[in-house]
């Protein structure tokens, strides 16, 4: 049984990769391609948020790191003329550094204190960007950013898509590696029981900071990619929207799993664009909100657990057992 599951997972991954590679050749719609690029970027962003949550820390202000990565990378690229493909990683390093600083204030905090601090941090960073730092950041007017590739290169959209796809895959592989390694185990141990983890010789402060740093780094990569894709940067990037979307994607896909953010982002993007096509406006958010709540209550491990859940329900029904109180354990 276990062996079979692994094999199927392997084929699944191969299938996705094949489709991801084939899509640009199946469609010549720039809208789809652009949508996919933005979706890939949000997969990185959601995965970054997910890694932090994996260590038991739920941030409500990840837009801060998304934005810091974007600003730092843009400023480096514009001032030095280095290609964005390189500056993305410097920009992300700045985000990681700030991530450690904010992590230092957060490591001793629990759940919703931490949520409040991160939420407030995004507001503080936005305020700094438009006040003290305005001479560098352009304030509310924003600044033009270097593009990943010049539009004069023929077929640059497709190249850009593959570049972003490569970075996305690299990020997911990196996260997979971290989750599998001793670091990931330490994250898990801290999340489950901090005292026991400490007794087992894991230093929670160090690992929590590490989680902050890695998560902020990847969020910074995502932010920088998005801005180099769009070409213009304003402080709206720090908005609450950008902090809440990754949470929504991850919860729906499956919190604390590698595939969760990927599936959540893909499914929600499709649903979102589909609802938009029907002409719904505010209704879209109501539906997404309802899906989020239903997922938390009835599918606490997200869409990735849907097949198992369905099997479970079917089995129980066959045995005529009453359904268990959902999610209560």
């Amino acid at each position: 049984m276990h062996f079979k599951q692994d094999a199927m997972r392997k084929y699944g991954i191969i299938a996705i990769l094949a489709i991801a590679i084939a899509i640009p050749f199946l469609t010549d719609s720039m809208f789809i391609l652009n949508l996919l690029v933005l979706m890939l970027i949000f997969i990185i962003f959601a995965s970054a948020w997910n890694l932090l949550a994996y260590s038991g820390q739920g941030s409500l202000g990840h837009a801060a790191f998304f934005g810091i990565g974007a600003y730092a990378s843009t400023l480096i690229a514009v001032k030095s003329g280095i290609t964005p493909f390189v500056t993305i990683f410097f920009g992300a390093a700045v985000a990681a550094f700030i991530g450690i600083l904010i992590g230092l204030t957060c490591v001793r905090l629990k759940e919703w204190f931490l949520a409040m601090v991160t939420f407030g941090f995004a507001i503080i960073v936005q305020t700094l960007t438009v006040s003290v730092l305005a001479p560098v950041t352009g304030g509310w007017d924003g600044i033009a950013s270097a593009r990943l590739l010049s539009p004069s290169i023929p077929g640059y959209q497709i190249i850009e898509y593959f570049a972003v796809l490569a970075i996305t895959i690299a990020s997911i592989v990196a996260i997979w590696y971290i989750m599998k390694s001793r670091i990931g185990l330490a994250f898990l141990a801290i999340r489950e029981n901090e005292l026991e983890a400490q007794a087992a010789g894991i230093d929670p402060v160090r690992y929590r900071l590490l989680a902050f740093a890695i998560s902020a780094y990847l969020a910074g990569v995502a932010g920088a990619l998005q801005i180099h894709h769009i070409g213009y940067l304003t402080p709206e990037l720090y908005g609450v929207d950008n902090s809440f979307w990754p949470v929504t994607y991850v919860i729906l896909g499956g919190l604390g799993t590698l595939a969760g953010p990927v599936i959540g982002t893909i499914v929600l993007t499709i649903i979102w664009e589909g609802l938009k096509a029907t002409g719904l406006t505010f209704g879209r958010y109501v539906i997404v909100g309802a899906m989020l709540i239903l997922a938390i209550i009835f599918l606490p491990r997200g869409l990735v657990s849907l097949p198992e859940q369905v099997q479970e329900w079917v089995k129980r029904r066959k045995r005529k057992e009453p359904l268990p109180e959902p999610a209560g354990d």
């Binding site: 038991g56 739920g58 409500l60 759940e111 919703w112 809440f244 909100g289 309802a290 989020l292």
Partner: peptide, 14 residues
């Protein structure tokens, strides 16, 4: 506690 925070986000949207 994390679930309560995430649930709140859904409620805000709705």
């Amino acid at each position: 506690k994390l679930n309560e925070i995430f649930l709140s986000i859904g409620l805000i949207y709705i």
